[in-house]
C-alpha cells in the first residue's frame, strides 16, 4: 500500500522478473551511454562549439566590411553576398531580419559567423530543419559544407518580441 507505511522489513531481494527487467534496462542505458559518446566520433553532423566574445558594434562592423567586399545583388532591400570559397561569412540576426543573404557554392567549406545585435534569436534553416541558438555578444562559429544546391529559407525560432514571425532570411547554394 503506497499510501501506508510498509511492513517493518521492506528491503527484500528482487523477484526473478524484476531482476531481468532491471538488468535489461541497465544494459540498455549503459549501451546508450557509450553510444552517444561514440556518435560524436562516428556521426557526420556534430554540435558546433567554437565561440568568441564580440560586441554587437564590432560584429556589425565586420559584417558591413564583408558585405561591401562581396555584394552581388539585393532582394527586398537585403544585400545578397557571394561568399569567397573557403572564406568567412557573417550573418546578422536582429529584430526582425536575417541579413545579408548568403550565396555559397556546393562542396566548398565555409566558416559561418552568427551573432545577434539585440535579443536572443533562433537560427533555423528550412526545409532541412537545422537549428542553433544565437546570442548577442557571442560570435557563434560554425563550419559549413553545403552538399545540395538550392535556396534555403531562414526563420527565427526563438521568440524575439512581437515581430518574431516576420523574421526570415535566405541562404542560396549554387
Amino acid at each position: 500500500m503506497a499510501i501506508f507505511s510498509p511492513e517493518r522489513v521492506w528491503w527484500k531481494p528482487l523477484g526473478r522478473e524484476e531482476r531481468l527487467w532491471v538488468t535489461v534496462s541497465a544494459v540498455w542505458c549503459f549501451f546508450m551511454f557509450f553510444m552517444l559518446i561514440g556518435w560524436y566520433f562516428l556521426g557526420a553532423q556534430n554540435l558546433p562549439t567554437k565561440t568568441m566574445r564580440i560586441t554587437p558594434a564590432q560584429f556589425q562592423t565586420l559584417t558591413d566590411a564583408f558585405v561591401q567586399a562581396n555584394k552581388v545583388g539585393e532582394e527586398a532591400g537585403i544585400p545578397i553576398v557571394h561568399v569567397p570559397a573557403g572564406g568567412d561569412a557573417y550573418l546578422i540576426a536582429k529584430q526582425w531580419q536575417w541579413t545579408p543573404i548568403l550565396e555559397l557554392e556546393v562542396g566548398k567549406t565555409y566558416t559561418l559567423h552568427l551573432s545577434s545585435l539585440d535579443v536572443q534569436h533562433g537560427f533555423s534553416v528550412q526545409p532541412i530543419n537545422l537549428n542553433l541558438q544565437i546570442f548577442p555578444g557571442y560570435d557563434f562559429i560554425v563550419t559549413v559544407t553545403p552538399n545540395r544546391t538550392g535556396e534555403y529559407g531562414l526563420i527565427c525560432n526563438e521568440f524575439c518580441s512581437i515581430g518574431h514571425h516576420l523574421m526570415t532570411g535566405k541562404i542560396i547554394v549554387k
Binding site: E75, A76, G77, I78, Q97, I101, Q126, P127, G153, L154, I155, N157, E158, F159, H164, H165, L166, M167, T168, G169, K170
Partner: peptide, 15 residues
C-alpha cells in the same frame, strides 16, 4: 512560439 508559420508578411518568403 510562432504566430504565423506561413510567413505571409515576411520580407523574404519561406515555405
Amino acid at each position: 512560439r510562432h504566430w504565423d508559420t506561413t510567413f505571409t508578411n515576411a520580407a523574404i518568403p519561406v515555405q
